[in-house]
Amino acid sequence: MKKIYIVAGIMVVVAIGLLMSAAKDMGTFGTFAEAEQSGAKVKISGQLSKDKEMYYNPEEDPNYFSFYITDSQGDERKVVLRAGKPQDFELSEQIVVTGTMQNDVFLATDMLMKCPSKYKDDEIYVKSQG
């Protein structure tokens, strides 16, 4: 048998091994309840609760931003992000946060915002003057 095939064979085995082990890097989009139970790092995709307070006061702490999101189970919780408040935050609808539950708040280490497309097809901006 050719040496190349042996090498290729080893690689395939390694690849399968890696992909198997990679499975534990993957999770489903979780819920707050799951995060609470497991205590592990969870990725949650939820809707921003626009009626609830979004608290950011840089004079007090420029690295503390809190807001509320509702997960896929309809569970609404407070999320704390230890960073500045991102621009355009109010415009986002879907928020994906990664982090853990600490007591009653979800402490996010990472956040991804999905803003609705900048150009809504049903909106035409009208000139403000003439």
């Binding site: 840089p58 007090e60 702490d61 690295n63 230890r82 960073a83 600490q102 708040v105 402490l107 280490t109």
Partner: peptide, 23 residues
Amino acid sequence: SNPFVMDGLIEGADDDLYKRNIL
């Protein structure tokens, strides 16, 4: 990093998590 920022607002937060921004 801002050494004067108040700590302990959140239990168990890693140190490198905050202190990224300074006022």
